[in-house]
Amino acid sequence: MRVRNLHLRHLPVPPDRAGALIDGLASPDDALWPADRWPAMRLDRPLAVGAAGGHGPVRYTVAAYTPGHGVRFRFRAPRGFDGFHEFTAGPADGGGAVLRHLLAIRAHGPALLTWPLVFRPLHDALLEDCLDRAEHALTGTVRAPARWSPYVRLLRAAAVRGRRRRDEALGTGPVRP
């Protein structure tokens, strides 16, 4: 199954300001990734080709990076996700900038079920939260904030319960939702 999933936000700022948000991904000053609500994006070194990391159960390597414009991550996990996801910033028709996130994969094996049932709803909610953060960072406001669906809230609650059980079994600390 081929999957192409696109999220974008038009922003009333020059494209280089939107591109600067991409440049800050996985850094201590990351103003794009919503680590306050989702598993943080972490990389084994600063954003550059070859940096490896991920967020939650998703693992990837930086396959391409053009400062001020975009970054492409090649998936390594979960199983069945063959492809990439990327953030790009560029000029919008009529002025301003457009910040885009594209996920393009060939889903196979377990991903034939996990993508539509689990990962897509969570991915869509996470990306809309990213774009809300971008809009707020660049304009000071969010015109139409994203809202999580009841299904996304259910999936997140189930994930938190699962992490709590795992942490209790391992004797590690509390889990944040």
Rank of each mutant, 00 (worst) to 15 (best):
A77V: 00
P110T: 09
R72K: 12
R59K: 13
A97Y: 06
D36K: 05
L102I: 14
V118D: 02
R76E: 13
R17D: 08
A40Y: 09
L131A: 02
T141L: 10
Y65D: 04
R100K: 15
V98K: 07
H108Y: 14
L99F: 06
A111Q: 04
P28Y: 12
L47E: 05
F81S: 08
D36L: 02
R74N: 07
H69E: 15
G96C: 07
L117W: 13
A48L: 03
D93H: 06
G70M: 12
H136F: 14
R42W: 05
C130N: 04
P39W: 09
G54E: 08
R100G: 10
L112M: 13
D44H: 14
T88V: 13
A97T: 11
L127P: 00
A48G: 01
P28Q: 12
G95F: 08
L117F: 14
D44A: 12
T141H: 14
P67V: 07
A137C: 05
P57C: 11
G109C: 08
A64G: 10
G95C: 10
P121D: 04
R143K: 11
V13G: 06
D124R: 02
F119S: 00
D82T: 15
R45G: 14
G140H: 07
G24M: 05
A92S: 13
R59M: 06
G95N: 10
F81T: 04
A26C: 11
T139C: 09
L117I: 10
G53M: 09
W38S: 00
P14D: 13
G19T: 03
L99G: 00
H136P: 01
P116V: 07
D82P: 02
A48N: 02
L127Q: 09
H108P: 07
D16W: 13
R37Q: 15
L126N: 01
P28G: 07
V118T: 11
F75R: 05
H55Y: 15
G53V: 08
V58R: 05
T141R: 15
V49C: 05
T114V: 15
D129Y: 00
G24H: 01
E128W: 02
A125C: 02
L122A: 02
R45P: 04
D82F: 09
L99T: 01
G24N: 03
R120I: 00
A35E: 11
F73A: 10
A31P: 00
G19Y: 03
H55I: 04
T114P: 02
G24F: 01
F73W: 15
A92I: 06
R42H: 12
V142Q: 06
P46V: 10
G83W: 08
A63H: 11
P34D: 00
P57I: 12
G94W: 04
V98E: 15
H101N: 14
P121T: 04
G50T: 06
A63T: 07
V62I: 15
D132S: 02
H123C: 06
W115L: 11
A125W: 00
A20V: 01
R79Y: 10
V58P: 03
C130Q: 05
D30I: 13
L112H: 09
D29R: 14
A64D: 14
R79W: 13
A51S: 14
